[in-house]
Amino acid sequence: MKAGFWIAPEGEEQPVNIFPIGEESLDAAHKGLTAAGALAKLATLDSAELARNCPNAIVLLSQVADSIARQTSDGPTQLFRLAGLNDLERRLIDDVLGEGEVAGVVALPGGSLAQIQESVLAGVWRVRWEADSQHDYIEIGPVPEIVTRAAADLTVPDFEIGAAPEGIMNALPVLAEIRERTLAWKPGTRTQTINFTLLPMSPADMSFLQDTLRNGPIQLVSRGYGTCRVLATGVRNVWSVQFFNAMDTIILDTLEVGGVPVVALAADEDFEDSAVRLKEIIEAYFT
């Protein structure tokens, strides 16, 4: 067992199970091409052929590029549905966007999942709901809206602190501090962090803490300069944020009280850079 607020089940090394978008084969029975077949066809096309075979995808990418340039970190997200694209166009979108640093899942009511994958263009996301092809879209923003909505709608605003079991050292004052900060926090105020790496917390403390706060509906992984795993707890605005080294050992274990942790968010400079990069790709390959 690894120490930390989030403890992986016995035999599991990854607390977040991510299903990358765009890797599975398409259903040939009603979609015509497999993913491999679509990519193979794309590889044989020059820019003129791409314009003829994937006009809707190229128009959409141009619209996305223009929209990224207008996006700000504090503005509403912008959404582009993929329902009108054919299979070749969808594969072209996947090939252009690729997979970036942040991925995750959101547990939805009814037991289904929304899969999230940031593209190689920071601030441009692919979002797809399981078993619902109509919810397959590109979203531009700091983080997909479904993350912020689930964090607000599928968590509770307050929690009770039960009787402490045997072996508890510091969990009760820590939970009291978390509850006080949670009830006082408002959007726009500074995120507050509790660092378990520096606190003398026993295994019994951490177990009681997790049992009290519970796991929430959102799991995110950022794989930038290291691995960071973000888990929404069952309490609104309380997040477990853990940083790991190359040996999958926790080097920083925290709880954050605030909005979606900044490690998972795109910033204004990301939108500026992504808009330039996408326009360069369009000019190089499709014009």
Score class of each variant (00 low, 15 high):
R90K: 14
R90Q: 07
R91H: 04
L92M: 11
I93G: 00
D94M: 04
D94I: 02
D94H: 08
D95N: 15
D95S: 15
D95W: 12
V96F: 04
V96S: 03
V96Y: 03
V96M: 05
G98M: 06
G98Q: 04
G98L: 07
E99F: 00
E99R: 12
E99L: 07
G100N: 07
G100L: 09
A103N: 14
A103L: 12
G104L: 09
G104Y: 12
G104E: 12
L108W: 09
L108D: 12
P109F: 03
G110P: 03
G110I: 07
G111R: 12
G111L: 09
G111M: 10
G111V: 06
G111E: 10
S112E: 12
S112P: 01
L113T: 07
L113S: 10
L113P: 00
A114P: 03
Q115P: 00
I116L: 13
Q117P: 00
Q117V: 01
S119Y: 02
S119F: 01
V120K: 15
L121K: 11
A122Q: 10
A122H: 12
G123Q: 10
V124I: 14
V124L: 15
V124G: 04
R126D: 01
R126P: 03
R126A: 03
V127H: 05
V127L: 13
V127D: 02
R128H: 04
W129C: 11
W129R: 15
E130H: 06
E130D: 15
A131Y: 08
D132L: 12
D132Y: 03
S133G: 06
Q134S: 11
Q134P: 01
H135C: 13
D136K: 01
Y137A: 13
I138H: 08
E139A: 09
E139P: 02
I140W: 03
I140L: 14
I140S: 04
G141Y: 06
G141D: 06
P142L: 07
P142M: 13
P142V: 08
V143F: 04
V143C: 05
P144V: 13
E145W: 08
E145I: 14
E145A: 15
E145Y: 08
I146F: 00
I146T: 09
I146R: 12
V147M: 11
V147E: 06
T148E: 03
R149T: 10
R149F: 00
